[in-house]
């Protein structure tokens, strides 16, 4: 998890929750309990959260505060979940969203 800030000159060492496992498109990743799903994904180098319905273009984190809804993904089978404000829970199944589905377009 090289994208984590280990020590910050002003904020010091930030307190993190307990380490949990979750899956991203079936692949097991690690994150911290309670942090936004998007933060855990970013820390694991994941950039693309979804592909748009019409143009099939990639999208990822944009506003990070739940406004823009660009970072939505299919979480535990539910589409359109704003990953930037949804806390990570042990065992969560997070999937790239294609349109409004977790299935790639060619399988839809």
């Amino acid at each position: 998890m090289s994208e984590r800030i280990k020590e910050h000159p002003i904020l010091g060492v930030q307190e993190k929750g307990k380490s949990v496992k979750f899956t991203f498109d079936g692949k097991e990743l690690e994150g911290y309990e309670g942090e936004p799903i998007a933060a855990a994904l970013k820390a694991n180098g994941v950039m693309v959260h979804r592909y748009t319905r019409k143009e099939h273009k990639p999208r990822g984190i944009f506003c990070a505060i739940g406004r823009c809804t660009d970072c939505v993904m299919v979480v535990n089978g539910v589409p359109n979940v704003r990953t930037c404000i949804t806390p990570l829970v042990e065992g969560m199944e997070v999937c790239t969203q294609y349109g409004v589905s977790a299935k790639p377009f060619e399988e839809q």
């Binding site: 944009f62 506003c63 406004r67 823009c68 809804t69 660009d70 939505v72 359109n80």
Partner: peptide, 8 residues
């Protein structure tokens, strides 16, 4: 009129 309701 999409998910973000015009925020952006």
């Amino acid at each position: 009129m999409g998910l973000c309701q015009g925020q952006t």
